[in-house]
Design a protein around this nucleic acid. Structure first.
Length: 398
RNA sequence: GCCGGGGUACCGAAGCGGCCAAACGGGACGGACUGUAAAUCCGUUGGCCUAUGCGCCUACGGGGGUUCAAAUCCCUCCCCCGGCACCA
């Protein structure tokens, strides 16, 4: 058994803020004494079934709690998702059906359990208590919080000041999320730093409902691959934890250098002080390797590294190239094919295919083609390259 | 309810009868450069047609109309935003 001090140090790794730390100490101590595990809550959004490595950081922390014997409670925000998050603006306000939520969650669970210990994980849906909440109960909940307190949230305050609209539903959101903590009697709630306000509301509400307030445990947000916005699927700057090794590796290599230290610190156990002595490219490769190793395996990471070197550094042919089936009917009697016909098999449109050819993006067996008005003789197994990242191997079909 | 502003391509935003597939910026994509990237530079960015042509089709919230000609004018509907009014 680890000492309290060791546990605390273990849990504090990578945490940005723990509000308040003394409560965490108190809870850990009591748990150890009574043998009752802490209930550690994490709210998950069921609108997208993909877990990216940014969320992976938070899940790892949950895992840390589990290793100390505590219980992870994943709350699926199915009810709140069906209303649609008002902060995401009208275009995003898609209502999810029950079926969609179920399907998303199935995928989500599978991925989350790559990190979490299934023995110590509870999945709960917040529709369980929110859907059946009647108006009287809602009024009770609403009475526990004030407008002034709501306006402490920065973006509310700013919008209010500037006369921009804030819908009532937006006020209800933190309340609903906070109520989740009451429903499952959370001891600790994890979240990204963007969740600070919401987690604090949960803490306050629990107290007003006569519960012991939760500890708010804030984890850093991972910036996306572009280094500008936070990692998220909607920004297209993310790495999913189930992505194939090569893809994961490649994406991680594409981050700007300025982001490297953060990635190393948040995603790997590498020693940054030591690492930064190396050539920048090597630093990045080590980081990418470590991440791939974590979500796949050491062997997969080795292969991904080797593959990356081969394709991008030495500009050689990748090990695995998808087959591109080419119908023999497209061939002219003399066995050639019009280059535009060929490229449009991998391009969005024929116009795009033509553009790519003229821009010198197309290579056949290493030979660059820049005239769209050409016919080429193809053979089975010929390597087609379009741009930096698209490779295909022709296979002729009847 | 009233008054005013607005809805343009992936996003932001100009255009306000023909020269508009629509300036400009961002993004994305391609090329050069590199350390793989970033930065920088150059180019592309609705679709179709063997194809750089004063080519064809579709497109400026939906529908209808005026006109030789509409993103641009008129009617109508929908949606968004702001102000006023209302406020037990």
């Amino acid at each position: 058994m680890r000492t309290l001090e060791e546990q605390l140090r273990f849990l504090k790794r990578r945490a940005v803020d723990i509000i308040p730390e003394r409560d965490l100490v108190k809870k850990l101590e009591r748990s150890q004494r009574t043998g009752r595990p802490l209930r550690v809550k994490l709210g998950v959004d069921p609108t997208s079934p993909d877990i990216h490595i940014g969320i992976g950081i938070v899940l790892q922390k949950l895992r840390d709690f589990q290793e100390l014997g505590h219980t992870a409670v994943l709350i699926v925000g199915d009810f709140t998702a069906r209303i649609g998050d008002p902060s995401e603006r009208a275009s995003q306000r898609k209502m999810l059906s029950k079926d969609e939520v179920t399907a998303n969650m199935k995928a989500y669970k599978e991925q989350a359990l790559k990190i979490l210990d299934p023995e110590r994980t509870e999945f709960r849906y917040n529709s369980e208590w929110l859907e059946t909440m009647d108006f009287a109960k809602l009024l009770e909940l609403a009475s526990k919080y004030t407008v002034a307190a709501m306006l402490e949230r920065d973006d509310f305050a700013a919008r209010f000041r500037e006369g921009n609209p804030i819908s009532i539903v937006e006020f209800l959101y933190p309340l609903a999320q906070g109520y989740d903590s009451i429903a499952i009697e959370a001891d600790v709630e994890l979240g990204g730093t963007d969740q600070r306000f919401n987690l604090l509301v949960g803490r306050a509400l629990q107290e007003r409902y006569g519960q012991e307030p939760q500890v708010c445990f804030l984890m850093p947000l991972l910036e996306g691959l572009d280094g500008a916005k936070k990692m998220s699927k909607s920004h297209g700057n993310y790495v999913g934890i189930t992505e194939p090794p090569n893809e994961m590796f490649g994406k991680l290599m594409s981050i700007p250098d300025a982001l490297l230290e953060k990635y190393v610190q948040l995603l790997t156990d590498l020693d940054w002080e030591e690492l930064k002595q190396l050539h920048p490219k090597e630093q990045k490769e080590k980081m990418a390797h470590a991440v791939v190793a974590r979500y796949h395996s050491k062997e997969a990471a080795d292969r991904a590294l080797e593959e990356f070197e081969r394709v991008f550094a030495r500009k050689e042919r990748p090990a695995d190239v998808p087959k591109l089936s080419l119908d023999k009917k497209l061939l002219k009697p003399d066995g050639t094919v019009w280059i535009v016909d060929l490229v449009s098999l991998v391009a969005k449109s024929r116009s795009e295919a033509k553009r790519l050819i003229e821009q010198g993006a197309v290579e056949l067996d290493g030979v660059k083609i820049t005239q769209f008005d050409t016919h080429v003789r193809v053979r089975d197994g010929m390597l087609v390259r379009v741009g930096k990242h698209t490779f295909a191997e022709i296979s002729l079909t009847e």
